[in-house]
Design a protein around this nucleic acid. Structure first.
Lengths: 213, 213
DNA sequence: TCTCATAATGGGGCATCTCTCATTTTAGAG
DNA sequence: CTCTAAAATGAGAGATGCCCCATTATGAGA
């Protein structure tokens, strides 16, 4: 499924490679200087291409922004998926997902910083990020773990907490903030502080098994 | 204390008036188009002044941004103060303050929208906004209402929820989101959903007495 | 009424950014 | 090796924005 390269003509292969050079350059720069703080010509230069070449691969700047953000959220979700689905309770999935997401953003700061920039400069990214969250929350509600029902405002609140967690972590805060953000999620969803703590603790062994992979 | 005008020479009075015209124009435009989306020449034009006049009153753009943000946060705090201080419990103050703040932002959307823009384009505003919040939270911790201790991350989380509340409200959500944001604050601080609800309900009569002023 | 410090003007220098296009370079196909 | 389509180039048009400054207008006080 991954090895499509064989079926590409040399011409197509080159096109794909150049496009990827641009996307990777854009990710590097945008995560450092922010999305709006990065110009098209900087991206081209970083990719060792001329200014105009950019426009043979992307209609305009917004198109590469969307591509980069999508690539990053996809990469982050891939980094999580398998482990989360082994948990049966919605509450555990929420706690685990939140903590994982923050930890991945911290371990891969290029991704994390891009997310931070995208939160303010490419709002559409929220939909991608919240996609997995909605399912876990809905599951928890269905199972009766949470008293809060799922609506836009609850999701926005959880996203806001997630964002604060990533930001703190990138700013040098200890890994503990990931765990706290996870418990805050559960509390907002209606669980008591004690229950939230217990559920989150239970996910820790899964987290540790990942750390030692 | 307000009537300082009498002691101003005509020249000084004119200077003050012109400066205020600029600040008000800036507030109008920035709340509509965002801080970064508003240019100095647009501000000058809106204030019916020439481009260069701006620089007789502000060193640069960032100076008027700071002035406008400070003016708005001050105005909002003034709109709240008296009522909040009549509450004795930290938890009640937090709930009341949060709900009030969101309601004021919704009632005065020019202020609210400026805040939204400032959250992303003038980060220093967070310090001003959180100043009152820190005191209320600290009081609640001291009284044992909250299990969570006060640190930067908790404050950032509360700010993030506040922001989500204002944004939702400005986006047309019902007043209910203010109350929910208030309860989320209490839950994050460690109160059970039931206690949070009770405390927040108790503040409602104060809120209503204000609505009918 | 006249003077001159202060207020206001607005054109433009300089920097930056997006996107275009006429031209050159590259490399696969025959 | 040659031909040619695709890839890449990079100068620059067109916009916009910040800020400066030489110049003009105003109005308070003598």
């Amino acid at each position: 499924m991954t090895g499509r390269k064989a079926s590409l003509s040399p011409r197509e292969a080159k096109r794909v490679r150049t496009r990827q050079r641009l996307t990777e350059a854009a990710l590097r720069l945008m995560s450092e200087r922010g999305i709006n703080g990065t110009s098209v010509s900087e991206i081209a230069t970083e990719a060792e291409l001329a200014n105009g070449t950019f426009y043979l691969y992307f209609k305009d700047k917004s198109e590469i922004v969307a591509a980069v953000c999508q690539a990053v959220t996809l990469a982050m979700h891939n980094e999580m998926d398998s482990r989360r689905l082994s948990l049966e309770e919605g509450s555990a999935r929420v706690a685990f997902g939140t903590q994982q997401f923050i930890e991945i953003a911290a371990a891969e700061p290029t991704w994390g910083r891009l997310l931070m920039s995208a939160f303010t400069e490419f709002e559409a990214i929220k939909d991608d990020i919240s996609r997995y969250m909605r399912l876990d929350v809905a599951l928890g509600v269905e199972q009766g773990c949470f008293t809060e029902s799922v609506d836009e405002f609850v999701i926005d609140t959880l996203l806001a907490i997630l964002r604060a967690g990533i930001e703190a972590r990138l700013g040098g805060a200890k890994a503990e903030v990931g765990a706290r953000a996870a418990e805050y999620h559960l509390r907002v969803l209606g669980m008591s502080a004690a229950d939230a703590h217990r559920v989150r603790l239970a996910t820790d062994k899964v987290v540790e098994s990942q750390a030692s992979r």
